[in-house]
């Protein structure tokens, strides 16, 4: 077992454990903090894939922005759930069955797939890889239109969020 594999197993264990805590934590605030750890773990997994750009993006967007947003939402709505001790709904066994069944099905499918032997592709040295991504996102023959549409989507989501969350009646 190489060092990288050990590192990956460690990352995976930490990430999955914090993910479990996210769905199992009693208090929403704790769940949010565990979520941050899980997201950092995913960023580390990106790093092991040599997708350094996305590792940074993961920290900036998820840990930096989305997690903070979720913490704010958790704090703003904290009062409502305090008198309800049960954190799971009544149908949780069925949910467990569904999620577990899906996992079992996926693992079964993986066990029949033979494409795992392919080794990782070679990546060019230096920043070439990120430069190629940048070009793909901005070149007209690449993904310029989806990229622009995505930015439009963000603006629309921003306006929509302000509209929905803001109390316009006042």
């Amino acid at each position: 077992m190489t060092g990288l594999q050990v590192v990956f197993l460690l990352i995976g264990a930490v990430t999955l454990a914090s993910a479990v805590m996210v769905v199992a934590a009693k208090r929403v605030m704790h769940a949010a903090l565990w979520l941050i750890l899980a997201l950092v773990g995913v960023a580390a997994a990106y790093a092991t894939l040599e997708a350094s750009f996305f590792a940074v993006m993961q920290v900036a967007v998820y840990v930096g922005a989305i997690a903070i947003l979720i913490i704010f939402a958790a704090m703003l709505t904290r009062r409502s759930m305090e008198d309800d001790p049960a954190r799971l709904n009544k149908g949780w066994p069925a949910a467990l069955l569904a999620a577990g069944g899906l996992l079992a099905g996926l693992v079964y499918l993986f066990s029949r797939w033979t494409g795992f032997s392919s080794p990782a592709r070679a990546l060019p040295e230096g920043g070439e890889n990120i430069a190629a991504l940048g070009l793909a996102l901005t070149a007209p023959e690449g993904f310029l239109v989806p990229f622009e549409v995505a930015s439009l989507l963000l603006v629309a989501a921003m306006i929509g969020a302000i509209y929905v969350a803001g109390d316009l009646r006042k």
Binding site: N89, G91, A95, A98
Partner: peptide, 10 residues
């Protein structure tokens, strides 16, 4: 795990 959270959390 995420799916379970979506399906089961209140």
């Amino acid at each position: 795990i995420g799916l379970f959270g979506v399906l089961a959390r209140k």
